[in-house]
Amino acid sequence: MEPEPLVDTVTLGRAASSTSVGFDEFYLSEMGRLVALARSLAGVAVAEDIAQEAMLVAYRRWREVGALQRPDLWVRRTCANMAVSQFRRRVAELRATTRLTRRRPDATPEPMSERAEEFWDAVRTLPHRQAQAAALRFVYDMPIAEIAETLGCSAGTVKQHLSRARQALSVALDLQDRSD
């Protein structure tokens, strides 16, 4: 029994020369090899996307690329460059994520009391803007002007949202109006 090769190879016909093929034939003859190239440089998960993207670039520039003596070499170089860029981007993202997770403080919040859970459940039932205004007010203890700036509305609008939120929460939580 013959051992499996370490490298996946794809052989699909001859190299395309620009004088003998249109884009459709070029695509069909080259796509399998491009996927294999991208797979070897960037991995299986993104190989087909990279190969398709390289072909898309070739299609958009087909007048120029198709006039080349060896358009297959051009699209292979493009695919290789895209695969390497994708690999580098993934490595950079992984490094950044690792760096940020080391710096991140413990994000596990302290458990809330049953009454606090009830309050925030009621806040989540409010209309969108009222809930946002209430959360900014109670979580960050923001003044009206900062809430208005954060939400991109006027201070009067924030006051109205907070007033309506307070009334709705009072009813939802069965509280008496304490503003008297």
Rank of each mutant, 00 (worst) to 15 (best):
residue 63 R to P: 00
residue 64 E to P: 00
residue 64 E to H: 06
residue 64 E to Q: 09
residue 66 G to S: 08
residue 66 G to W: 07
residue 68 L to F: 04
residue 70 R to K: 11
residue 70 R to H: 12
residue 72 D to E: 15
residue 72 D to N: 14
residue 73 L to Y: 09
residue 73 L to I: 05
residue 74 W to N: 02
residue 77 R to T: 15
residue 77 R to W: 03
residue 77 R to D: 05
residue 77 R to I: 13
residue 78 T to D: 03
residue 78 T to E: 09
residue 78 T to F: 01
residue 81 N to R: 14
residue 81 N to S: 05
residue 82 M to G: 15
residue 83 A to L: 10
residue 83 A to I: 11
residue 84 V to H: 10
residue 85 S to T: 11
residue 85 S to G: 08
residue 86 Q to R: 09
residue 88 R to C: 08
residue 88 R to K: 15
residue 89 R to K: 14
residue 89 R to V: 07
residue 90 R to Y: 05
residue 90 R to E: 15
residue 92 A to Y: 08
residue 93 E to C: 02
residue 94 L to G: 10
residue 94 L to S: 12
residue 94 L to K: 14
residue 96 A to P: 00
residue 98 T to P: 00
residue 98 T to F: 11
residue 98 T to V: 13
residue 100 L to F: 11
residue 101 T to E: 07
residue 101 T to P: 00
residue 101 T to M: 10
residue 102 R to N: 09
residue 103 R to E: 13
residue 105 P to L: 12
residue 106 D to S: 14
residue 107 A to R: 09
residue 107 A to F: 04
residue 107 A to N: 03
residue 108 T to V: 13
residue 108 T to D: 04
residue 110 E to Q: 11
residue 110 E to F: 04
residue 110 E to D: 11
residue 110 E to R: 12
residue 112 M to S: 12
residue 114 E to A: 14
residue 115 R to G: 05
residue 116 A to K: 08
residue 118 E to S: 14
residue 118 E to Y: 04
residue 120 W to Y: 15
residue 122 A to I: 07
residue 123 V to T: 04
residue 126 L to R: 07
residue 130 Q to C: 08
residue 130 Q to H: 03
residue 131 A to D: 00
residue 132 Q to G: 00
residue 132 Q to D: 06
residue 133 A to I: 02
residue 134 A to S: 13
residue 134 A to K: 14
residue 135 A to E: 06
residue 137 R to M: 09
residue 137 R to H: 13
residue 139 V to K: 04
residue 139 V to A: 09
residue 142 M to D: 07
residue 143 P to N: 06
residue 148 A to G: 13
residue 149 E to M: 02
residue 150 T to Y: 06
residue 151 L to F: 02
residue 151 L to N: 03
residue 152 G to A: 02
residue 153 C to E: 03
residue 158 V to H: 03
residue 162 L to C: 04
residue 163 S to I: 00
residue 164 R to T: 05
residue 166 R to G: 11
residue 170 S to G: 14
residue 170 S to L: 07
residue 171 V to H: 11
